[in-house]
Simulated scan of single mutants.
Amino acid sequence: MKKHNFSAGPCILPQEVFKEASQAVLDFNNSGLSILEISHRSKDFVDVMEEARSLALELLGLEGKGYKALFLQGGASTQFLMTAYNLLQTKAGYLNTGAWSDKALKEAKFFGEIVEVASSKDSNFNFIPKGFDIPNDLDYLHLTSNNTIYGTQLKEFPSANAPLVCDMSSDIFSRQLDFSKFSIIYAGAQKNMGPAGATLVIIKEDILGKIERQIPSILDYQVHISKGSMFNTPPVYSVYVSMLTMRWLKKLGGIAAIEELNEKKSKLIYSEIDLNPLFQGFATKEDRSNMNATFTLVNEDLKETFDTMWKEAEINGINGHRSIGGYRASMYNAMTLESVATLVDVMGDLERKA
């Protein structure tokens, strides 16, 4: 029996993607070779890379608008470094809303002055700061759209007199936005796209080439663009599964269709958190993430009972991050409404037994 997988990442992927990807491990495109052993320079994989990059721009509504899509390595953590290396000449702004934006900020300090425009760190990142001032002389403003650990999500994005750079690792392709507002979007694959190993980077080309420092080739966006994401050996399997996942999303009806499902899932679990007296949410209500619902037991004496109940229901991966404890239900695009309902039923059963 397939478990209800609420893991924060690596995480759930669509079953039809698993099936097609598993067949490709044995024989890719009837080539007699596995996807794990084909040359990344072969036509079969070049076609995969081109389709993956094209699908990313299509789903985000950025085709023909001066953007390039790249699949790189090193996760979002390498993008903390690359964005600053390629864009930061004198000063950049960072909105600090969680552990990952905090790390991004620290990496950028190697390249110039960093302005922390606002932070919720003093409240253990349980809300998104609002109404803050943004300096007019920034090289860029960096945001993190969704915070997996704390279960918060930006619902509105600030306007700035600077390019917007956004880490969308944990909510890419999950909701409709005007993606043309952003100059760089980056996202690790292991939440809504595919297995760990690939990082999608969307770049508006005209923001590049404006800094004076020399950039090592492997960290230079312009090099990767010129080589079509093939400057070094790409993570073939991760790119392939990401392509399959984007195909699946397009077939469903794209981001508009999946956003509707994601709203239903989040409403279902947050309603239970708010109505069930045994639980309380961690994040401020107006900033709650549709991807990661964080909550705790009001009475920790019930923890052993609750843990036994959700495990018996074949639920996996809802333990909260060690920094805040409690529970975290990650509901990425491939999570079904039925799986969320299963968790909600267990929470309701606990109330009836208590």
Rank of each mutant, 00 (worst) to 15 (best):
G320N: 02
G93K: 04
Q176G: 11
S34E: 03
K43W: 01
K91Q: 03
P158M: 04
S54L: 09
D301F: 08
K91Y: 02
F80V: 08
D206V: 09
Q222M: 15
I114P: 00
A56G: 03
L244Y: 02
L261A: 10
M49Y: 07
N290K: 10
I207A: 06
V223G: 05
L154V: 00
V115Q: 01
G317L: 05
D345E: 14
P163C: 07
T342E: 12
S183G: 13
N319R: 14
T336H: 07
L95C: 00
E50N: 13
S7W: 03
L59K: 04
L337R: 09
I258D: 01
E212Q: 15
N30S: 13
S101E: 02
G74A: 09
N276T: 07
M1W: 10
T83M: 08
R322D: 12
N136R: 15
I273S: 01
L268I: 09
M230Y: 05
E263P: 01
E212S: 14
A256L: 11
N161Q: 14
N299G: 07
S183V: 07
I35L: 10
E205Q: 13
K353F: 09
L141V: 00
S226M: 04
Y240S: 02
N192S: 08
F295N: 05
K303A: 15
N192W: 01
G75Q: 06
A189F: 14
L268Y: 09
G209E: 00
S226P: 07
P158D: 01
L59Q: 02
G209N: 06
K130Y: 03
N146D: 15
A256I: 12
L208E: 02
L81K: 14
I215A: 09
L350A: 06
P129N: 08
G326K: 00
